[in-house]
Amino acid sequence: MALVPIFQRHGIFLGTPLASGSSRPHSFPDSATRSRAVLHKAARRPPGTVTMHSHVTFTDEASDREYRYQLVFPKDADVAENRISVLTLVGAGLIGLKPGQTILWPDRDGRERRLKVMSVERGSPVT
């Protein structure tokens, strides 16, 4: 699988996976991810869980650098405004996490980094 970056910032790779030789992204989430998913109606979502429109603060434990982004649909993504798409690798990986949880993530050099969720705030859709 080749990775085509949507953007790279401070060494964190944010991209969309593509099939080798393809210019079309794989669909997210894959069947393995969907089989583990627990769906909740908006009013019953567990508090403090990363969902669409959440403002997420996370730390790259290797550099101790902190980031804060809002998770949005692709059409609303704007790194300069700290909004990342749910279809980026980081965006898809953060969905469902709570403060204190971590994920391993590849940086632009292919090394795995541990990203730890520090806080989650519910947000509103971008208008």
Rank of each mutant, 00 (worst) to 15 (best):
residue 1 M to L: 14
residue 3 L to K: 12
residue 3 L to W: 14
residue 4 V to I: 15
residue 5 P to H: 14
residue 5 P to F: 14
residue 7 F to I: 04
residue 8 Q to I: 15
residue 8 Q to M: 11
residue 8 Q to G: 15
residue 11 G to R: 06
residue 12 I to M: 12
residue 15 G to K: 01
residue 15 G to L: 00
residue 16 T to W: 07
residue 18 L to V: 13
residue 20 S to L: 11
residue 21 G to K: 08
residue 21 G to H: 10
residue 26 H to W: 14
residue 26 H to N: 09
residue 28 F to W: 12
residue 31 S to I: 11
residue 31 S to W: 03
residue 31 S to A: 14
residue 31 S to K: 14
residue 32 A to T: 13
residue 33 T to K: 09
residue 35 S to Y: 00
residue 35 S to W: 00
residue 37 A to W: 06
residue 39 L to N: 05
residue 40 H to Q: 09
residue 40 H to L: 06
residue 41 K to P: 02
residue 49 T to Q: 08
residue 50 V to E: 01
residue 52 M to W: 06
residue 54 S to L: 01
residue 56 V to L: 08
residue 58 F to V: 05
residue 61 E to C: 12
residue 63 S to C: 06
residue 64 D to T: 02
residue 69 Y to N: 02
residue 69 Y to I: 03
residue 69 Y to A: 03
residue 72 V to L: 04
residue 72 V to S: 03
residue 76 D to I: 01
residue 77 A to N: 05
residue 80 A to H: 13
residue 80 A to C: 09
residue 80 A to Q: 15
residue 81 E to H: 07
residue 81 E to Y: 00
residue 82 N to P: 00
residue 83 R to F: 05
residue 84 I to D: 01
residue 84 I to P: 00
residue 86 V to E: 03
residue 86 V to C: 10
residue 88 T to C: 09
residue 88 T to H: 02
residue 88 T to N: 10
residue 95 I to M: 13
residue 96 G to K: 05
residue 96 G to S: 11
residue 97 L to A: 05
residue 98 K to N: 07
residue 98 K to W: 02
residue 99 P to S: 00
residue 100 G to F: 06
residue 101 Q to P: 00
residue 102 T to C: 15
residue 103 I to E: 01
residue 104 L to A: 12
residue 107 D to S: 09
residue 108 R to S: 14
residue 109 D to T: 15
residue 115 L to A: 07
residue 115 L to I: 07
residue 116 K to T: 12
residue 117 V to D: 02
residue 117 V to W: 02
residue 118 M to Y: 02
residue 119 S to C: 09
residue 121 E to S: 08
residue 122 R to W: 00
residue 123 G to V: 07
residue 123 G to R: 06
residue 126 V to G: 02
